[in-house]
């Protein structure tokens, strides 16, 4: 029994069969990578998991509860957090405010009319936000406007925002896209650290083989909307189908 179970998910876009009977079983606490060439359906698949897209058929169960049919904010409240390919943050707000928002969402639920309370008085939220920012090493940028952060810092901030919700499952869409090698390695360490210390399950979509093979416990290979191989990193490396579909084109 995995924390996330995907069964027979199909999705069509007009004549394109974007997802073809996709099955996935993610073990609790594991880092599960999904790789595949461009247009293989990776992002479509992730969007189906967070409620952005509704698959045509199939079921997605999270901790035994159905995910499909729920609104994105409800799916998030179940404990599924998403990190986007281009960092999605509140760029008009300060770094500190950015982190406080998910803390509020975690404590107060999807809506609370607390217009008379002062943020200044919310000591528990402020302490939590401080702690999280310390975790990702951004405590010196507390009062900076999020828009003025570097790209790498924006990613770290988004990660911090997801972490502050104490999620059970994190979905990461190319967390190291466009990063220099040093930053990529720092991110790998950070993600491994999070996974080990907090036991958060992760599903990672990634192009960079270096990231995939240094992080993933299990790898699924998606090609033309179908999963063509699944297994431990070593098994995937040597898999003939995978070499043909994907790795053959890239350097390993």
């Amino acid at each position: 029994m995995g924390i996330l179970e995907v069964q027979n998910v199909n999705k069509h876009f007009g004549g394109l069969h974007a997802l073809n009977n996709v099955n996935l079983d993610v073990k609790e606490g594991a880092i599960h990578a999904i790789i595949g060439p461009n247009g293989a359906g990776k992002s479509t698949f992730l969007n189906c998991l967070i409620g952005k897209l509704a698959p045509d058929t199939g079921s997605v169960m999270f901790q035994g509860e159905p995910v499909l049919g729920k609104k994105p904010y409800q799916i998030n409240q179940m404990g599924i957090s998403r990190v986007f390919q281009t960092p999605e943050i509140f760029s008009d707000l300060t770094v500190f405010e950015n982190v406080m928002i998910p803390c509020f969402a975690h404590r107060d639920g999807s809506f609370m009319l607390n217009a008379w309370k002062a943020i200044k008085g919310e000591t528990d939220i402020r302490e939590q936000a401080d702690r999280i920012l310390l975790d990702v090493n951004m405590q010196d940028k507390l009062h900076m406007n999020a828009a003025s952060l570097s790209r790498g810092d924006k990613r770290r901030l988004e990660l911090a925002m997801c972490l502050s919700q104490d999620p059970k499952l994190m979905l990461l869409d190319e967390p190291t896209a466009g990063m220099a090698r040093a930053d990529t390695n720092a991110t790998i360490d950070l993600l491994r650290d999070i996974s080990e210390k907090r036991g958060i399950t992760m599903v990672i979509i990634e192009h960079d083989m270096h990231v995939v093979f240094s992080l993933a416990d299990t790898i699924s290979v998606l090609a033309q909307g179908a999963i063509i191989a699944e297994g431990l990193p070593d098994e995937i490396k040597g898999h003939p189908k995978v070499r043909e579909a994907y790795l053959g084109e890239a350097e390993v």
């Binding site: 967070i50 994105p72 904010y73 998030n76 409240q77 957090s81 998403r82 986007f84 999605e88 943050i89 509140f90 760029s91 008009d92 707000l93 405010e97 928002i101 998910p102 969402a105 975690h106 639920g109 999807s110 809506f111 925002m161 919700q165």
Partner: peptide
């Protein structure tokens, strides 16, 4: 203010 800044992010933050 978060709605004004990035409504999408707020929805995926459980709000």
């Amino acid at each position: 203010r978060a709605i004004k800044s990035n409504q999408n992010r707020l929805i995926y933050t459980g709000i």
